[in-house]
Computed example of a mutant assay.
Amino acid sequence: MARGSFEGAGGSLLSDLVPRHLTPVPAPADPLALVPQVRAALDGTAPLAVLPAGPPAAVEAARAVLRPEQPLEDGADLVVVTSGSTGGGRGVLLPAGAVHASAEATLHRLGGPGAWLLALPVSAIAGLQVLCRSLLGGTAPTVLGSGEPLTAAVARMPARRRYTSLVPTQLRRYLDAEPAALRAFDAVLVGGAATDAALLARARDEDVAVVTTYGMTETAGGCVYDGEPLGGVQVRVTDGGVELAGPVLATGYRLDPEGTAAAFTGGWFRTRDAGTLDDSGRLTVHGRLDDVVVTGGVNVAPQAVEAVLRQHPDVVDAVVFGRPDDEWGQRVAAAVVPAPGATPDLAALRPWVAERLGGPAAPRELHRIDAVPTLHTGKPDRRGVAAAVTHRRS
Rank of each mutant, 00 (worst) to 15 (best):
L366F: 11
D273K: 12
V35T: 11
R161T: 12
A184D: 14
L200Q: 05
P338Q: 04
T82P: 13
D196T: 14
R90N: 02
A103W: 00
A9S: 15
V233H: 02
G75S: 11
L78M: 14
G54R: 04
S123W: 09
S15T: 05
A115G: 10
A371D: 15
A371N: 04
C132P: 00
D239V: 04
A159P: 06
E69C: 02
A193F: 05
P31T: 03
R392Q: 13
L166W: 08
A49F: 02
H391G: 15
A263C: 14
G8D: 07
L66P: 06
L93K: 01
L32M: 05
V293E: 01
W116I: 07
L13G: 11
R39M: 03
Y225M: 11
E60H: 12
E60D: 14
T374Q: 14
G275K: 07
W328A: 10
A96R: 09
G87A: 07
E355D: 15
D317L: 07
R109F: 12
D74S: 13
A2D: 11
V79A: 06
V99P: 06
G378I: 10
R368M: 07
T169Y: 06
E60S: 10
P141T: 03
G322I: 05
E365V: 09
A371P: 08
G4L: 06
A339G: 07
G296I: 08
D291H: 13
G91W: 01
R254Q: 05
P360C: 10
Y253W: 04
T82N: 08
T260E: 08
A184N: 10
V190P: 14
L144A: 03
V285H: 01
S15G: 11
G4I: 01
P55F: 00
Q170C: 05
L375E: 01
A46S: 13
P95Y: 07
D273V: 13
P380N: 00
N299G: 02
T86W: 07
V237L: 08
P52I: 02
T195Y: 09
L144W: 05
R162M: 10
E258T: 14
R67D: 15
G112D: 04
A220D: 06
R331M: 03
G84C: 08
G322A: 13
V122Q: 00
T45G: 11
L34T: 09
R133I: 02
T142G: 00
L51I: 02
A250D: 05
Y253V: 02
A27H: 04
R236T: 12
P340G: 04
G384P: 08
L72K: 05
P113D: 03
A262G: 14
G137D: 01
P344H: 09
D314C: 10
W116V: 07
T212W: 01
G147F: 12
V294S: 11
G127S: 06
P95R: 05
I369Y: 12
D207W: 14
H391Y: 02
G44K: 08
A61C: 03
H286L: 14
V385K: 02
E104H: 14
H21A: 01
G147L: 11
S5F: 01
A245R: 06
P324L: 06
L150G: 08
R183S: 13
P28N: 03
P351M: 09
V208T: 09
R350G: 00
L136W: 09
F264W: 15
